[in-house]
Every structure is written in C-alpha cells, then in structure tokens.
Nucleic acid binder design. Structure first.
Length: 586
RNA sequence: GCCCCUGUAGCUCAAUGGACAGAGCGCCAGACUUCUAAUCUGUCGGUUGCAGGUUCGAUUCCUGCCAGGGGCGCCA
C-alpha cells in the first residue's frame, strides 16, 4: 500500500549511498514488526555482505548499522514521517500516524467492498474442485476440497484473475453401476426419501458389501456395466434419473455452502474422446498397446530416458475400458481449447500427486508443453477421523455433512438464544447457521493445505478462540456501534490529537490486506487471509476495549466512527474472501 | 527400495532467510450499572525431532539420520 513512498525513499537512499561509492543491493521493505509501531523498514545487511564478498574487510552487522546511520543522516526526516531511525542494521521509518491514518481510512471508505481487490489482470484461470462422485454420499471428507477450492477461487478473483469455477462429476464408473445394481436388486421402484444423501449412501454401502462378499455379484455388476456401455435404454434412463437425484442433492449442498460453479464437466462425456485419444497415442508411438495380455501404457521413463521417476502411466485397461487417466487427458486439453487459460488448477488431495505429475508430463509428450506447464496440482491433505481413520463411504466410516451442519447449527442456536433472546426465531436460526458454517470453513482454511485435519466433534463444536465467530463478533460489534451512532457521515477529518496505539495497530493491520491477498493468490494459500482476518478482529477488539466511541464527542467521536466503519468493512471483506457470512447480530 | 508431505509450548496451529519464535485451547488468578463478556487483562509454558553444512543471520535453504502419514502398471 506504500509502494510510492518506498520507491521515493529508495531513490533517495540510492543517491546518498552512490555518493559514498557504496553499491546498494536490492532493498526489501516490510512493516516494522513491533506492535503499536507503525511504519516501514528495510535493512542493509545485504549491502554490507556484498562489500564483504568483494574483499572489503568489514563485519557485516556493524557495517550494516554504519550504512543505516549514513542513510538516516542523509534522509533526515522525510515528508510524511515522524522519525527515521537506524537500529542494528535496520532503517526504521515511522509514519506520521495522523496523516497516514487519514489516508488509509479514506481509501477503505472510497473502495468499500472492493477494498483489498487488486487490479484486473485479464488472465483466465480455471480452478477445478469438488469433483464428487454421483450415487455416493457427500461427507465431511469432501468438505475440505470444496472449502479450499472455493476460497482459492475468491482469492484469485480478488487478486485480479478471471476465475472459472469448474466441477468434474464422476457420474459413471464401477461405483455407479454397483449402486444401480443394488437399487435394481433391493430397492427397485423406490424413490428417494427426504433424506436423499443418506438414502443413496446406504444403498451404495449395501451394494458394495454384496460386491465384496459374493463373487457372483461382481459378474452381475460387470454385466450391467456392459449393458450401460451398449446403450441399453432402460439402464440409461435409470442412470440418468438416479444421477439427477445426486445432482440435485449436490446442488443443495453447494447452495448451503454458498459455493458456485461456472462449468460442469461430466466424466461420462469425456470417455469417448478419451478412447479416441488413446488410439491416437498408440499411433503416435507414445502409448504402447500390450493388449490383450496387458494394458495400454505410456512408458514415461522410457520415453524420457529416465529411471524410476515418472514410471508408467496406464491409460486403458486390458479389456479396453477406460480409467481416470483415459478421461483426464482429453479433459485437460478441452479446458484450454474452451477457454484461453493462463492457468489450470486441480484441487485434488495429495494422494494423487504422483498421478497428476504423470498426467501433466504425458500432456507435454503429447505435444502440449505449453498446456502442461500451465497445469497446477493444488494438493491438500485429507480429513481423517481420530485414530487416523480415513473416511470411506465404502466402509461407512463417514460423518455426513448434513449431520455436522445440523449439530453445529443447533449448538450455535443455543448460544444465540442465550446471548440474544429478543431476536426473532428466524434471525436466531440465520445467525446460528452463519456461525456454524463459518466455524466449519474457518477451521479448515486456517490450517495450511499440507496439514492433515483430524475431524473431532468436540473441536468442531467449539466456537471459542481463534475461530470464525470471533471474527464475526468483531464485525457485529462494529456494526452495532455504527447503528447506534446513526451511521457515519461526511468526509474524514484529520484528528486534532495523536492516535491511540490500538487505533494505530488496527489501521496498520487493515493496510496489509491487499498484500496478503496477493501472496495468498501466488501461493494458493487461504491460510494467510484466515490469519489476517483474525489479526484484524483482535486489533478491533483491543481498540473496542480501550477506545470508547459513542461516549466521546466532537472530532474524536467522528474520527473513531470512521475507524469503526473501516474496520467493519475490512473484516467483512476478509470474511467474504473466505466465503464466510458476516452477520449483523450475534 | 524410491518419491512426496509433516515434525515448533501439555494439545491444535502461526511465523515473505531477518529484530525478542507468536496465537488459540487447557490450567490458575482477575474484569460486566459500560459501545453486546461469543470479549478483555494477567500468570505458567520452547534445546523449533537429531547431527552437520551454507549464510553477516536458519523454524525457514542444503545433506544425512530418526519418527509419523501418503504414494509408486490396469482403484478412483
């Protein structure tokens, strides 16, 4: 947010030091890391180290401090700053807080909901996430993907990219046929109860049990798969009808989670292009057909002259049926052909890292190196149950999403009813849901993508501490002050007196939002935004406890109201990026 | 066997190669006639898995170990 100042200072520093025949290494600017101190800082260790490397006999830290002192003397106190201090090799420049606070508040006020957004880049990025299998239950294990993928989309959007949110549905495969078999065998003619997800999940678990226990069932299922492949109209009709039940259920879940998609791809649609592509690969000598004894493979290491690196990618079963890879290859290309993508991101759990590396390498060998290098696997760790038990719909070790949301909402409802009994039933419900869903989202977004999440009922129900409600509550408090004050009005005046340290800290944290969004987008890590949102809420609570607003009058009251309005805006924007609803009361 | 990820306070997690490694939870002791206490203040808590190396400076980068998790030709 202070690029202009930094650039101006850099020029001055450069001219001061070149006069002394000191070659300046690149200057990196950061915020002064001490709470309550507001300003920017840089250091001269790199500059001193470069001198040492060039044969000058200097002790780096001492020399860095010498240079910092030299610069400080040369700069004096630059315009807009109150102090310029050389400390242990660092050069600390302290803002004139009144002036800068005014500037920041004005910026937040003017930009409003767009505060923190970066300029548009005119680059399209596709993010594929969620990828649920139809005919299977949607459980807590699937949650992280949706929450992460959606948040990354928001972050990229805020960072200036044109984001295409894509979903890739596993609407065909053995799991679907197993389900159809189970339906025909034990539930023919039944229609889904109101609890559709559970109903379909139960049928799936039942069918899987038979499939695994009875070898004859496998034969029957394979036979059924054959009928599907041959386009048996009865089977096709049943498949489409039951698939729709699943899609409706997913739709409901996405709506509940506040998540949306621009483009749906179906696995069933890319199977045929995949089969054709494999033929082409064989013709081109990229794939080797070892049928009927073996499968069709892309011998990656052999083609690349490597050993034990990319290994071998199987692209077609020996019986000629398709695999994931059969479909992923054409789909990857289709995405680029359909949209002119600068980046194609796959939000898929870490267990598929090696597989995706193979897919991207195969794309390269197929003659699409420019696509391959734009593909990126955004890997995240899975959500386990305590005792390192992986959720599996086959084994029935799952916590259903709706159960989690219901329990969490109930718990939140009790608390709202306690805190705010005068609210209407509907309002309480709405708030409870926002708190529950926000907590679930925040608990996953505030951990790094590479960390395993262990699902724990007790912790999922805990709304205290560093969690969404803390941030939502700060937002509510800010709104409450503004409401009682009748809203803020007019332009922001310079306050007559110095700012309170908590005011400075709060404004300081606000200014970091654009940079944090930028970094979160570069690294695909919502964690940074989650942390910032919390820091902001904490800074606001400090301010709230130490700086009365409504009790003051005149300039101080007016100025603090603007701080409150800006803080509310900043909190709301951060929550929006995370996909968490900001309620008006709690 | 090879590859990837993780290892930081009792627990769950932070920390663009920089200043004193920070939060939350839990424990204990406090603060509501106040702008909503879903809040705040204070106390306790560390050989950043181990050993080397690079660097002026390493939780961060490199190497080797140790521990846990995941992956490695017809599952998705």
């Amino acid at each position: 947010m202070f690029e202009a100042e930094q650039k101006r200072l850099e020029e001055q520093i450069l001219s001061i030091l070149t006069q002394q025949d000191i070659f300046v290494s690149e200057l990196k600017w950061t915020q002064i890391p001490f709470t309550g101190e507001w300003g920017i800082t840089t250091s001269f260790f790199a500059t001193a180290a470069a001198e040492a490397r060039n044969g000058k006999s200097v002790v780096v830290p001492r020399r860095a401090q010498e240079i910092a002192e030299m610069v400080a003397n040369g700069l004096g106190t630059p315009e807009g700053f109150t102090k310029c201090e050389p400390v242990r090799g660092y050069l600390n420049l302290y803002f004139s807080t009144v002036e800068y606070a005014h500037r920041v508040l004005t910026e937040v006020q003017v930009k409003g909901d767009a505060f923190g957004k970066l300029s548009r880049k005119s680059q399209r990025v596709m993010v594929e996430y969620s990828q649920p299998n139809t005919h299977k239950p949607f459980h807590v294990g699937h949650l992280r993907n949706v929450i992460l993928g959606s948040a990354v989309c928001n972050i990229l959007d805020w960072a200036g990219y044109d984001v295409i949110r894509a979903n890739y549905l596993g609407d065909i495969g053995l799991h679907v046929i197993k389900w159809l078999w189970g339906y025909l065998k034990f539930h023919q003619g039944e229609t889904p109860a109101h609890d559709m997800v559970r109903w379909m999940g139960d049928i799936y678990a039942e069918a899987t049990r038979h499939f695994e226990e009875d070898p004859d069932v496998e034969k029957e299922v394979r036979q059924l798969f054959g009928r599907w492949h041959n386009g048996d109209p009865d089977i096709e009709a049943l498949w489409l009808k039951t698939r729709q039940w699943s899609l409706d259920a997913f739709d409901q879940i996405y709506r509940m989670m506040g998540v949306e998609f621009d483009r749906y791809y179906f696995e069933s649609e890319v199977e045929k292009p995949g089969l054709e592509l494999v033929d082409q690969l064989i013709q081109d000598g990229i794939a080797r057909d070892e049928r009927p004894q073996d499968s069709v493979i892309v011998p990656l290491d052999e083609l690349l002259g490597l050993e034990n690196d990319y290994r071998v990618l199987v692209v077609l079963r020996s019986d000629g049926t398709s695999l994931y890879s059969t479909k992923d290859l054409p789909l990857a290309i289709q995405k680029f052909n359909e949209y002119d993508l600068a980046k194609s991101i796959y939000v898929i759990d870490v267990r598929q890292s090696f597989y995706l590396r193979q897919i991207f390498k195969t794309l390269e060998l197929m003659g699409y190196p420019e696509y391959a290098e734009k593909c990126h696997h955004l890997a995240y760790e899975i959500v386990n149950l305590p005792g390192n038990v992986t959720m599996s719909s086959r084994e029935g070790t799952v916590v259903l999403l709706e159960d989690l949301v219901r329990e969490a909402t109930q718990r939140a409802f009790q608390i709202v009813a306690e805190k705010n009994p005068e609210l209407s039933e509907a309002a309480k419900k709405e708030i409870a849901f926002a708190v529950a869903m926000g907590s679930i989202k925040y608990s996953m977004l505030s951990k790094d993508n590479t960390k395993v999440v262990t699902f724990d009922w007790e912790r999922a129900m805990d709304f205290n501490g560093q969690a969404a409600p803390y941030i939502q509550y700060a937002y509510v408090r800010a709104g409450s002050i503004l409401r009682k004050a009748g809203g803020t009005v007019g332009t922001i005046e310079h306050p007559a007196s110095d700012l309170h340290p908590t005011e400075v800290q709060l404004i300081d944290v606000m200014t970091r939002i654009p940079d944090v969004i930028q970094r979160a987008a570069e690294e695909y890590r919502p964690l940074h935004v989650a942390t910032l949102a919390y820091d902001l809420a904490r800074a606001f609570n400090d301010f709230y406890n130490q700086c009365p607003v409504l009790k003051e009058d005149g300039e101080i009251r007016a100025f603090r109201l603007h701080i409150v309005a800006a803080a509310r805006q900043a909190l709301g924007n951060c929550l929006a990026v995370l996909g968490i609803v900001a309620p008006d009361a709690m």
